[in-house]
Write a protein that binds this DNA or RNA. Structure first.
Lengths: 167, 167
DNA sequence: AAGCGCATGTAAAGGGTTACATGATTGC
DNA sequence: GCAATCATGTAACCCTTTACATGCGCTT
């Protein structure tokens, strides 16, 4: 149900087609939430059925440009202000960690090194993003998100580095 | 597909029933991966069908105590040592962040304060866990996991605190 | 005009949660 | 004996991904 509200949020900035939104979703929310294009296209038709978004006339390649409706903005605000957000998280890269006792120190070291490299790369990327953009409200919020992602990946990179068993 | 391997990992420490494993899953992997009991019961019967685990004779309340088989241990090791882990993550609590520009500073502050409190509580909890346990290999790996969770939630708590707009 | 990448979509399968159902023990 | 809780299980639904399908537009 969350992709639904994120699409409303993206459309609150500016209208867009399914393809646009797929790219913008990845750009804005990629660090937080994966979403493939079939899910997005599906959710868009459902949102349109519910009157929360509306499609302009078709453009080239039967492109439909969606914009958010008043009902959609109301629902978006309701979602943003409701107290108690969903606190579920999933960190698949850490799934092996509790079972590393089954491996040799060398194998553990190899695994954690690989992980550290991966996290470090992402940390750098989001650290840069957290310094980009202009002074628009949207950019400020985007920086906030990038800052969270940067801190998160920095913490994971440090953790993996510090946790490697000696030689 | 990951719950499957985690169950193998849990059973590598010691045998257990569906109920046991539901509790141990939450205890060991709760910070990383949610899993409700229907998913666990289902996965257990499938693992047993595939011969990766086996059930002893039924105990009271038709309890089936599962243990891991040799084939299961082989599959577990294969999973742990395969290169390139799944790097997908999902952080639902951050989903609102990119859209906070739609709210008033006061509302943003309220939201981030609520989030910070939540993260700080979890950070403390995992920080304690990261200092507990004995010297068994399993406990060491569990500490490693708790340390990752602690750093993660500490980073998020700091982020939420630092990001609140002034008064 | 041919080929490639862009853009949109659908179908089917898999993963996961919610809600329901039920029997077995324990505590009173 | 009764209530509460433990423990196991199932059915239906929702969410998400993978794979397939297709047509348009641009470049050469």
């Amino acid at each position: 149900m969350s992709v639904r509200h994120c699409l409303l949020g993206l459309l609150a900035s500016e209208p867009g087609s399914g393809y646009d939104l797929t790219r913008r979703f990845e750009e804005v929310l990629g660090a937080i939430r994966p979403a493939r294009h079939p899910q997005i296209y599906g959710e868009l038709t459902r949102l349109a059925d519910d009157g929360l978004i509306a499609a302009e006339a078709e453009g080239p390649r039967r492109r439909k440009e969606y914009r958010i409706t008043d009902a959609g903005m109301a629902e978006l605000r309701r979602w943003l202000t409701e107290s108690g957000s969903d606190h579920t998280i999933r960190l698949d890269p850490l799934l092996r960690t509790p079972f590393l006792w089954l491996l040799s120190p060398a194998e553990v070291r190899a695994h954690l090194t690989e992980e550290a490299d991966h996290y470090r790369g992402l940390a750098v990327r989001y650290r840069h993003l957290a310094a980009a953009g202009d002074d628009s409200p949207q950019s400020c919020a985007a920086r906030l998100t990038a800052e969270a992602a940067a801190r998160l990946y920095e913490a994971l990179a440090d953790w993996a580095r510090d946790s490697r068993p000696g030689t």
